Computed example of a mutant assay.
Amino acid sequence: MILQKMSSRNVTNNGRSSGKSVCNQKGTTLKETTLNLTKTGEEDEGCCERTLRASYKVALRLARAGRPFMDGPLIKNIMLDVVETMNPTLAPAYSRIPLSGMTIHRRINDIAENLHEQLAAKIENFLAYSIALDESTDINDTAQLAIFLRGVDDDLHVTEELLDMISLKDTVTGADILAAVEMAAEGIGLPWEKLFSVTTDGAPAMCGKAKGLLDYCGKNSTC
């Protein structure tokens, strides 16, 4: 009887101890799994951010060089060829960088919108500004009006930017140029009362006494 009681107690104690050890092992495994999942999620998030930044940097390079959107896939193939030759282990990371033609198009639009917003924020603090206008004809015989902006804020910081490039489809008169300038100014929130000077390229449409831009500006209250 004594032996039976001792054996039954041992079985019970062993069962409890084994149950606790199993639970402890399971708890440790779950914690390790959670930690691994968290690390994996952080790594994936970091990888996605890096690939996104790389995509925007390539798009910016293409825009500055005036290259077509479809050069994106070509650049990606070149990068993969170089990486597979120099360090093949990095090839999967480079292959995830989105550089299709449509992606490059969206990236450049995003960059342009961001630059427009930055310029609009600076314009709000302008004390005064001036504009310079240059009209020329492209290879398609279409008149292109370039509008340059230069302004100064309260801290005397000078900002110089290309405000806009506008195509003049039909005629190129002083009235057409004035309408284009007004459209560009209203689109970014330039206050006319802070306009200090207008510089032109000396073309008749700009400086003509009868129908030139400066003549219209003299008669128009907005200039």
Rank of each mutant, 00 (worst) to 15 (best):
A112N: 06
A112D: 05
A112R: 07
E113C: 12
N114A: 13
N114V: 00
H116P: 00
Q118Y: 01
Q118L: 10
Q118G: 04
L119D: 03
A121Y: 02
A121G: 06
K122P: 01
K122I: 02
K122Y: 04
I123V: 13
I123R: 01
E124D: 11
E124L: 14
E124G: 07
E124K: 14
N125W: 00
N125V: 04
N125F: 06
F126P: 01
L127R: 12
Y129C: 10
Y129F: 15
S130H: 07
S130Q: 07
S130R: 04
I131Q: 06
I131K: 08
A132V: 10
A132P: 09
L133Y: 03
D134H: 15
D134I: 04
D134A: 13
D134V: 06
T137I: 04
T137V: 08
D138Q: 04
D138T: 01
N140V: 05
D141K: 15
D141I: 06
D141W: 01
T142C: 14
T142P: 00
A143S: 14
Q144N: 05
L145C: 04
L145M: 08
F148G: 09
F148N: 10
F148S: 10
L149G: 02
R150N: 06
R150K: 11
V152K: 06
D153N: 14
D153H: 03
D153E: 03
D153P: 03
D154N: 13
D154F: 07
L156S: 09
L156Q: 05
H157W: 09
H157K: 15
T159V: 07
T159H: 09
E160W: 00
E161W: 02
E161I: 00
D164A: 15
D164H: 06
D164Y: 02
S167K: 12
S167V: 12
S167L: 07
L168H: 02
L168Y: 04
L168Q: 03
L168N: 04
L168G: 05
D170T: 12
T171S: 11
T171F: 10
T171H: 10
V172W: 04
V172T: 15
G174R: 07
G174S: 07
A175F: 08
D176N: 14
D176Q: 13
I177M: 15
L178H: 12
L178K: 15
L178Q: 15
A179N: 14
A180L: 09
A180W: 09
V181I: 15
V181M: 12
E182C: 13
A184D: 10
A184V: 08
A185F: 14
